[in-house]
Amino acid sequence: MFEDLWRFATPQLGGRDWLREMLDDAFLDRGASDIRAVPRGTFPMVNLGATDDAVYVYVFAPGVDPKALDISIQDNVLTLRGERRLPGKGTDTEQWPVFHRRERMGGHFSRVLTLPEGVDGDATEAFSRDGVIQIKLPKRAEQKRRKIEVKAQ
């Protein structure tokens, strides 16, 4: 009858990632990594991409009010700050609900990303859909791809 109690002693990820943790431990990259690199699964998760004209950042922030997300850029360093509220007790007098599983992270978060050099912070725009915030950072003119014409003599 007490087999069930093991789940109360598990860490935040609820044992979901034990295999990954074991593998990470066994095959941990002891080499140098980027100073701003974060472990996998850090909230919010981020994808980066680029076109000829702009750098795109996709922030996967489910359950975060996009208006409450603070996005700032200085040079090529992008900072994301916000808060995610998870279900819990509403008021002080209310009881905590019984949790069977808690795999999601809550509370205040901030993430700092290094972007490629030469993005134009002033022309940056962001929009949100379905919990994904797309940030478009146009490249400065000198960083854009140029076509070089070959002159014939």
Binding site: T42, M45, N47, L48, G49, A50, T51, D52, Y56, F60
Partner: peptide
């Protein structure tokens, strides 16, 4: 159009 991914966590 023409986006190349440079880093992806998802």
């Amino acid at each position: 159009e023409g986006l190349t991914a440079s880093y992806a966590e998802i």
